[in-house]
Every structure is written in C-alpha cells, then in structure tokens.
Design a binder for these strands. Structure first.
Lengths: 340, 340
DNA sequence: TTGTAGGCGTTATCAA
DNA sequence: TTGATAACGCCTACAA
C-alpha cells in the first residue's frame, strides 16, 4: 500500500520548498534545470498527480458537470447521456449523474446537493412532476447563484437559460403529412399527459398537419395515456372502438404496444393501419415489421447541450453571451410499419 | 445574482469569528443560545450551505463513487447503473460515470483521472479490450493506493477485490436443461468471443447440461459472434447449414437477431426452434413471440455492488474485511419463444 | 534561483 | 462563551 504523494511529501524528501516543487513540476523558468530534473524524476517515480479536490478549491471550478435525467432506462435519455459524457470527457470534464425518477423532490434535492461546490453547471431534462407542478424556483435560484444550466428536451419557457430542443411540432407535422400522402384518412395520435412540453408540441404538429390538409380534427382519435401505467386495456379499447388507418405515437413504447395490440386484433400493419413512433431505439429496429420512427438524435442533443454548457462556463468570466436555444432537427425514418 | 455565502461572509457580517459561526451552525454547546440563534437566522436567510469541496479536502473523502461501464446503451448496464445510483443516493453518495466504450485506454485514463481525489471508490465492469488484453495493472495500482474497487459482471480472477457476479454457468445449464426437458435434441449456443468471462461461463454451463443429459457436443452448433459487428450473414448461414431445434443466446440482441432471421427463413418459433436469451430487457418483452430469457437482475446487482463498496469505504478505518464475491441468482423467464 | 506567506472553505484544537 | 491558529493540497505574488 503506497498512498498518494503530495507536493509537501516531495518537498520534504528533496529538502526544497513546496513552491519550488510546484513550479518545477509546471516547468517554470524560475527553477534551475538541475532542480527541475531532480524533482520531476522524483515525482515521476512516485507517480505524483495533483489532487483534484485541492485544485477545485483553489480554482473554484470542479470540472464536473451535473446531469439530472428523469429516467436512465429510457433509450432516448440514455443516448443523450452518452452524447453528454462523450463531449464532456473530450473537454476534460467529468459527469455526475442523478436520476430524478420523474420526482420533483428528488430533482430539487439532488440539484441543491450538487450545487454546493460539486459541479460547475447543470444539464437537465425536467421531471414529470416538475412539469406537472410547474415549479421552477430551484432552477431560478441556481441561475441566480451564477450556476449555468442547460435544459434539454423537457424544457420550459419559465426559465431563461440555454436550451436544446427537438423540432417536435414540425416533425410531428411531417409524420402526419407522410400518412396523408400515403392515403390515410383517419389518423390517430397516441400521446401522454399535456403537461409534457414535448407531447404538447407533437400534438400541435399533429393538429397543424390535419389543418393544412383540410382534415377535420376528431378528438376521439387522440388517445392520452399515462406515462407510468399499464395502458394495454385503454389501447385495446381505443382500436376496437375507433376506425383508424394510421397512428402517430409520441414515444417508442407506445408505438410498439400499439403495434402489438393492433396485430392481435387482427389488423395488418401497415396495410390496415400504419404506425410511426418517436425515438429510434432498439425496439424500433427489431420489431416485426420494423417501426417507422422519428429519430431524435439523442447523442447529438447531448453533445450540443454539453457544448452549450461548457462554452458558457469557460466564457463566464469574459463576455456575457445571450441565452441560446438550439433546435435539433429530427429525422423521419421510414420502415415497414408505414406505407410509402 | 447572489453568489454562494461562506462562513467567512457570515462572520464578517455578524462581527464574530469564523469558528464561532462554524460551531453555531453545528449547534455546538460551546456557543450561547443568543449567538447561535442570530447566526442560524442569518445563515438560513442567506441560504448558507457548506461547500462540498472544502469538506472533501478537509475530510479526505468526497462522497463520490466512480462508475466505469463499457456501454450505457446496453439495457443490462443501464439497469445496473440505476441500482448503483439508487443505493448510493440513499447513502448520500454521488455517482460519477465514465463510459469506457469497451476501450482499455479510456478505462485506464478515466480511472486515473478520477482517482486523483475525485472519488472514494470505484465500481466497474471491465471493457472488452481489457478482458482481451488481460491487462489489469491500473486496477492493481489503484487498489495499492488504498482505493477500494468493486467489479461486477465482467470480472477477473487476476484481481483481488469485492465482486458481484451472476451464476452464469448454472443458469445457462438450467436453460439448456429446460430445452432438453421440452424435447429438444440439437441445441445451439450463440455466444461472443471467449475472453469475456461471462460468455465463457455460459458456455461452460451449456456444455455441462449436455454432458449431464448424455448429449454429445457438436462444435458446429456453437456460433461465435463478434460483440461489435454486423452478424446477420453469419447467423443466416448458421441456421441454413445446421439442423437446430433450440438456441441459447448469451445476450438479448443476439437472441432477437436470431429469432428474426429464423422466422425469415421460414421456421416457426418456438415449434421448430426454441430460443432463450440473456438480459430481460425491453426487446424481450415486446418481441413476437415474447422472448424467453434469463433475467440478470441488473438493478439488484448494482445495489449489491454499491453496498459492498460503501460498506468497505465506511469501515475502512476499522477492521480489514476479507474480500467478498456476491453471486446474484439469475431467473429463467419462460415466455413464448420456448416450449414448456 | 529559491522560499515565504496567504488564501480557497471548512473543522478541530487550544487559548483567551 | 468566543476566537486564533493550523491543517487539508495546491497555487502564486512577492520577498530574499
């Protein structure tokens, strides 16, 4: 067992002062070559590495980013996280993750915990409960303290900060347009509760498309499912009671569930009913037929969020940049579950 | 903008000494009620919170855990991570994640980075490359420095530390036994390169089961696929060229790929060919037919790993506990892709 | 060319 | 009951 070595240890062993060691290891011109060589050799031999914590305290920056996501088991968040981690790592930052589990309380507690020096900035996607309660004081306070925040995907206009969002409305509109062009007449939307900004935007896009193509809206064709419950019964009833020839689902799970139930009910996908989902995850790629889907480019979203945050953190001392909202353009991926 | 307040700030404003403030906020009996009340009120008003970094430096413990996983996009690792995060959070620890991306170099760099004070201990699953090269000096050095490590799933006997593993051989044996009981005669194994300890153990279990039931081993029925390449051609050829009535796959993706190709080739699952996979992920639950699978209980594995690590870290000063290897018992989940 | 001193924010020990 | 001081590990302005 050989514990970590410090500048002090080196100084003591080599009988020089701590600052000499510090300077020598930074290759300062102040120090004679002899001393530098001696100190460097010693440091190398004992595998000296500066202590991150001490550096953080001194520099008042930790090189840590706090990431708060509602649920890591969702493919979309996982890919965003990967993008964040990748970019952050390249830039020498570490990532501390907390999972809010869709709970406002956890979100608040975790953020306050991390905000006390552990991180330099946050990247987060709002928990369901936070969106439901519309409660953002914790974010406002952190911004007030000068801690930069980047919101992604689940964002809110109540907070002024950098954001990364998908062009949800547009792409939903495009997807519905795709259905219409292929001849669909009765297009359903399977969505979540309204307080999710993303669902709401996708709904807007859905309605827009209908309007543009002079379809009239049938509220019966909009099925709202809970984000955290078993929905099979509701879905079954929905497709039994409504004549539908196309469905846009706001996430991958809903899409796969719908497809499975639709098939069980004896309909053919895509001939009787076309389906398009959101999130180009593993489910979409391996289903039968393969699921047409909206690729959200989670990894790019993550990288973009990390870039926004790191740029802001590193420029913080200098100019005060205005807040930006980066829009990631989703892509419609046409596979077997919809007609071309 | 109101920056974070420090003990010093409070002391200055209230015209007392820093140590008085510190004691008052810890409710020390040394300080008079009056002073305490005054200081507490002030601190509360300005929302004082001790700086984590300063505490870390002082206490020589960060309350951070470093987690290194090969790939966050794999369902299994995601669930393990969730278990770690959950347990750690309950115990007041934060989790810093690095993704090794199956690369030994990244694994080494990230661990060394974090080891310089950022974390108190590691939980990791070895990268593919690390297992391939059989290179563990980085782990040895960290252990040598007194940094505790818990390995999970992808472990090695070369390193002495706490471990959490699945009873891979046993459960693979059980799965093959299940095939045999259902009448299968020609049972295939679809696996990855041998250097993965888990695949090797599952192979051993597969062979054991054959032996126990007096089946002779046909090496042609063992298909080895790369963990990072397109394997569709190989799989197709395999099922075209070999008469097979049951397949055990060492992961979920292989299982789904096999099922899809088997169906395309015109076989019925499970009547012509039964399939059992590993990892009870989202793919298994939504495939048609639903995939019989080995549930690895990732979340439990994560919690167990976190508990081992935290216990060791918190007892470190006291007794020196011997290293433990916790075995998680997998569960065979029988669904539509295999005959009962 | 090298060393001293002060500070980052906190706590603990000891002195007043 | 309160305060001064040192320490955690590092850096840096300034002094020698």
């Amino acid at each position: 067992m050989k514990p970590k070595i410090t500048l002090k240890d080196i100084a003591r062993e080599l009988d020089v002062s701590i600052s000499t060691v510090s300077k020598a290891l930074k290759n300062s011109a102040e120090i004679s070559k002899d001393t530098k060589d001696k100190i460097k050799a010693f440091a190398k031999f004992y595998n000296y590495r500066p202590n991150n914590i001490a550096l953080s305290l001194k520099n008042k920056r930790t090189k840590n980013i706090g990431v708060i996501i509602p649920d890591i088991v969702h493919h979309f968040f996982t890919t965003v996280f990967r993008g964040i981690e990748k970019y952050a790592n390249e830039k020498g930052y570490n990532v501390i993750v907390c999972i809010s589990d869709e709970s406002n309380e956890k979100e608040v507690i975790n953020m306050e915990m991390l905000a006390n020096g552990s991180i330099d900035g946050f990247i987060l996607s709002l928990s369901a409960e936070t969106q439901l309660k519309n409660e953002y004081t914790h974010l406002k306070e952190l911004l007030d303290q000068g801690i930069p925040i980047v919101l992604f995907d689940r964002v809110t206009s109540e907070i002024e900060c950098d954001k990364v969002v998908l062009n949800d409305a547009e792409i939903a509109c495009e997807a519905v347009g795709h259905f219409i062009k292929a001849g669909s007449k009765r297009i359903a939307l399977v969505t979540t509760e309204k307080y999710f900004n993303v669902s709401e935007n996708r709904r807007i896009g859905y309605l827009d498309a209908l309007k543009v193509h002079n379809f009239k809206v049938d509220e019966n064709l909009i099925l709202t499912l809970s984000h955290d419950m078993e929905n099979d019964m509701l879905i079954t009833e929905f497709f039994q009671n409504n004549k539908v020839d196309a469905v846009l689902c706001v996430n991958e799970i809903f899409a796969i569930q719908c497809m499975s139930i639709i098939q069980e009910l004896g309909f053919n996908v895509p001939n009787d009913i076309s389906i398009i989902g959101f999130t180009d995850g593993i489910l979409s790629r391996f289903s039968v037929p393969r699921l047409s889907t909206v690729a959200q480019h989670g990894e790019l979203m993550g990288e973009t969020a990390a870039k926004l945050l790191i740029d802001r953190m590193e420029w913080l001392d200098e100019v005060e940049e205005p807040f930006k909202t980066e829009v990631i353009n989703a892509t419609l991926i046409k596979r077997g579950s919809s007609i071309n």
